[in-house]
Design a protein around this nucleic acid. Structure first.
Length: 877
RNA sequence: GGGAGAUUAGCUCAGCUGGUUCAGAGCAUCUGCCUUACAAGCAGAGGGUCACUGGUUCGAACCCAGUAUCUCCCA
């Protein structure tokens, strides 16, 4: 047999096992009426994206849940896929074309889409391949894409349906315009950024009052050409005389009225607000209220149009700089202040958002929000951590209509068809549209070519909100076996930032189209940050490449590293040390395997390890119960930590040390059998976290049948161990004695193997006799004796209320020993005093639970025994 | 400006319905060890006025009020 490597080599085994799992079809799922279903849909990543640390965390958690469910005997189904990410993908395609010298405007829609699909075929799905490296146990045969034909059809049907229900409408609204992406985006796609801005103070000459000015503060001087009024607070004494007068727009000279409205804050700026309805939402509302006109001076791309009169064709930011100079030159600029404010930017392109009036499609939210809030309030959908329930409620109660149209080509084209007269019909196909159009217009001569389909596409989230239904073909075939079996799905793992974008809307769609929630539990992960708490980003360059990490530390190491510090909902401060710790853990497991692997069996030997195996069995069951509890509460890092400590501390540091034979000595068959059994149990518990190494060792540990993989092994069952509590506490006492001896070895600088003896001052020697072999083995003692008094020249310690002594001829510092015992005595006396005080308190004795009072009495008795013992020891010195 | 949450060891976090002298884990730290499974390791140790101030209670990290600081969401 080849020697086994001293350190675990993940690269060699990961590829192999992932391939075997797939060959065996372990990840593939189909409805099985004899098993309970467990389903998860992946939050579809952007089809052209690459794996980042956030994906790693998110998908590791999903895989842990799915693998455990599979082992629990459920029909586990994890559906993978990607979304088409319209803005992001279109931007990338536009960029690619630009590099080839092609402008989007040179292409027809069809030509552009051809390029886009080409791009998607080339780069799409890379991320799914990367997930395999992580070990993700998705059913790849079910991979879906939000723009594939079936899912597109689902989207269009839903659009038509909601339109017919009167929930979708078309209207002019102030939208968030992305001048770079050249599209409207929804409120949820706007990112507010704290920024240092400049506040310009401009003079507006008062009409008919030579030399008098009204000073207005604005951060956007380039929009003055779109001003239609200046507004002051009606109670502002400074401006009373101006209300109803007119002022001139600086440079431009156009006269606009001074109006009054309580909306204006008197102590912000100068208390005079320029009103620009076309370019600010609040101004728009103010304009509506006061019947003011709307002057839109911006083009789609953020340059000024001819309505601006000045600076036509220049970009808004260039104009801002220029106009400031020009105003200053004209003596109309009073001053410029720096101030902190919020800048709205596009989540997709990073461009500064322009509030802009335009015709868009909207989905009414009010009707759908009510039920979607209710199911979360009722815990029919549970959020983890629960604090997000509040956030969710606030949002749902203040929800606004959803702008679902995007001025892009990459996406599902809105199935609205315009008639020559400007009216429109909504239908799934052009043929149906034609039929409707003929009926609506009364013109039976209309042809398809007379209809013009809406140019816009639908928001990507308008596809993703259907995901839990559409991946199971629940729209195409609402009564099919898959949807009936897998829906509602069980758990959804995603980031809190898309709670509204996506989670809330999936709930709405689920209730609308399946009359049931889309999932029962939503686990919200935190954001992966670097060790300084900064969000990981490409720009900062503070994000490691996940695939490099896997190559370097192994997928199992990376997975556990990510989970070590990721309590639900909290951000994860990523530190490479965590991954190292994960890698070290794989190595620990590997070496435990090497140890047992090296044992030679001697069939003649008797079984000497009853106590040790009985204890580990109890310990394992204890840990299993804790583990189940953590899993039930979605406490992933606690689950992992429970297994980590069970394996490292209890199995490796204690159990294996208790049972392992002396160097080059053979082992008895029963110990080997039981140890191997324990190891198998541990591999099962470890498997969801560390799929690769566990599969590797599983197969090295024993000859396995063709279908015998830990990946599909049954999860250990909880079973009561008779006398478990005593077994555990007795061993704790024994191990505490071991620690006492080891501590003395350390303090006195004795080596770990120097033969020592131990004397115990007690009459109750039952425990010592029972655990004699274990204590002696773990602390390298030749013998343990019961004594009546402290042996001369010995160092002592107290454990479990009993005094122990290690005789050490000529190596004791009497003074230090006295001091130590004195401290111990002092502490114990203090402890007794506090217990006495409690027991002396009549109200305590009356009010507290009887078993609590009894416990206190026991503590008192223990303390008194200990004090007596310590006093004797001190006297003996 | 409105709302939510947080503040426990150097760091990241547990601490369930108040009840082991004011408390736990992992990592980090310190000390000693290359003791043939593992130095990616072993053994041991130290470390906290539970943000602050009051209150309720026989008893408070835990409940209440206020203060401070931080984070997130919304405007």
């Amino acid at each position: 047999m080849e020697p086994i490597a001293k350190t675990y080599q993940p690269a060699e085994v990961e590829e192999k096992w992932y391939q075997r799992w797939q060959e065996q079809g372990f990840f593939q799922s189909k409805p099985n009426p004899r098993k309970p279903a467990y389903s998860v849909v992946i939050p579809p990543p952007n089809v052209t994206g690459v794996l980042h640390m956030g994906h790693m965390l998110n998908n590791t958690i999903q895989d842990v849940l799915v693998r455990r469910a599979r082992m629990l005997g459920k029909e586990a189904c994890w559906v993978p896929g990607t979304d088409h990410a319209s803005i992001a993908t279109e931007a990338k395609v536009v960029q690619m074309l630009k590099e080839r010298g092609i402008a989007k405007t040179d292409l027809t829609r069809e030509e552009f889409l051809k390029y886009a699909w080409e791009w998607k075929e080339k780069y799409g799905g890379i991320i799914l391949e990367q997930l395999k490296k992580l070990g993700a146990s998705c059913d790849w045969s079910r991979t879906r894409f939000t723009m594939e034909p079936d899912l597109t059809e689902a989207v269009l049907r839903v659009f038509v349906d909601l339109y017919q229900k009167g929930l979708i409408y078309r209207g002019v609204r102030m939208v968030n315009w992305d001048p770079q992406g050249l599209t409207a985006i929804s409120d949820e796609e706007v990112v507010s950024k704290e920024s240092q801005l400049k506040m310009f103070y401009l003079r507006y000459p008062v009409v008919g009052a030579e030399g008098e000015f009204l000073t207005v503060a604005t951060s956007r001087p380039e929009t003055i050409m779109a001003d239609v009024a200046v507004c002051v607070n009606p109670h502002d004494e400074r401006y009373q005389h101006l209300i109803g007068q007119q002022v001139q727009i600086p440079l431009l000279g156009r006269a606009i009225p001074v109006i009054a409205d309580e909306y204006v804050t008197m102590d912000f700026g100068t208390g005079a607000l320029k009103v620009t309805p076309a370019h600010d939402l609040n101004d728009y509302e103010l304009g509506q209220k006061h019947n003011l006109p709307v002057i839109d001076i911006l083009n789609d791309n953020g340059t000024l149009n001819e309505k601006a009169v000045l600076y036509v064709g220049q970009d808004r930011f260039a104009v801002r700089k220029q106009i400031a100079k020009d105003l200053d030159a004209a003596g109309l600029l009073v001053k410029v202040d720096e101030y902190q404010s919020i800048l709205q930017t596009s989540e997709r392109t990073g461009a500064v958002i322009e509030p802009r009036l335009s015709m868009q499609w909207f989905l009414k939210m009010a009707e759908m929000a009510g039920p979607a809030l209710q199911v979360v309030e009722d815990d029919r959908v549970k959020l983890y951590p629960a604090k997000f329930k509040n956030t969710y409620r606030v949002w749902m109660e203040n929800i606004r209509d959803w702008c679902i149209s995007r001025q892009l080509w990459w996406g599902q084209r809105i199935p609205a068809f315009y008639l020559p007269d400007g009216s429109f019909v909504v239908a799934l196909t052009a043929e149906e549209a034609l039929e409707q159009a003929r009926e609506q217009s009364g013109n039976s001569a209309l042809q398809i070519s007379d209809l013009r389909q809406d140019e816009d596409v639908l928001d990507t989230w308008f596809s993703s909100w259907l995901w839990p239904i559409s991946v199971f073909d629940g729209f195409k075939d609402p009564d099919n076996a898959d949807i009936n079996y897998y829906y509602p799905t069980d758990d959804l793992v995603t980031a809190p930032e898309i709670l509204f974008f996506w989670v809330a809307r999936m709930i709405m769609a689920g209730l609308e189209y399946r009359h049931d929630v889309p999932f029962r539990n939503v686990y919200l992960t935190g954001i992966v940050r670097d060790d300084q708490g900064r969000k990981m980003s490409k720009q900062l360059g503070n994000s490691p490449d996940p695939l490099d990490l896997i190559a370097q530390y192994g997928a199992d190491g990376v997975r556990t590293g990510m989970l070590f510090s990721s309590p639900a909902g909290n951000d994860l401060l990523f530190d490479i040390k965590l991954v190292e710790q994960g890698r070290n853990f794989t190595n620990k497991i590997w070496n435990a395997f090497r140890l047992t692997q090296g044992w030679e069996v001697n069939a003649e030997l008797l079984f000497p390890n009853e106590k040790a195996t009985e204890w580990f069995q109890a310990k394992l069951q204890d840990a299993l119960a804790q583990l189940e509890d953590h899993f039930d509460k979605f406490r992933m890092s606690d689950s992992l930590m429970t297994v980590y400590k069970l394996v490292w501390d209890d199995f490796c540091s204690v159990y294996l040390e208790m049972v392992k034979p002396a160097y080059q000595q053979p082992i008895d068959p029963e110990t080997l059998r039981r140890t191997t059994g324990f190891f198998e149990q541990l591999l099962k518990l470890l498997h969801p976290f560390m799929p690769f190494i566990t599969e590797e060792i599983w197969h090295l540990l024993a000859e396995r049948g063709p279908k015998d993989y830990v990946c599909v092994a049954p999860w250990p069952k909880q079973q009561a161990v008779a006398g478990s509590a005593d077994i555990l506490s007795n061993m704790d006492r024994a191990l505490d004695i071991v620690a006492g001896v080891r501590n003395i070895r350390n303090q006195k600088g004795l080596g770990p193997n120097k033969p020592l003896t131990l004397a115990a001052k007690t009459d109750d020697t039952a425990l010592l006799r029972e655990y004699d072999a274990i204590i002696r083995k773990l602390s390298a003692l030749t013998e343990i004796n019961a004594v009546d008094a402290a042996p001369a020249a010995s160092v002592g310690f107290v454990s479990g209320g009993v005094e122990f002594f290690v005789p050490l001829e000529g190596q004791i510092d009497l003074g230090a020993e006295k001091e130590r015992l004195g401290k111990e005595l002092e502490y114990t006396q203090g402890f007794r005093a506090s217990v006495l005080q409690k027991l002396g308190n009549e109200k305590f004795v009356q009010n507290a639970k009887p078993e609590l009072v009894e416990k206190e009495r026991q503590k008192l008795a223990d303390a008194e025994a200990k004090i007596a013992a310590l006093e004797q020891s001190l006297a003996a010195l």
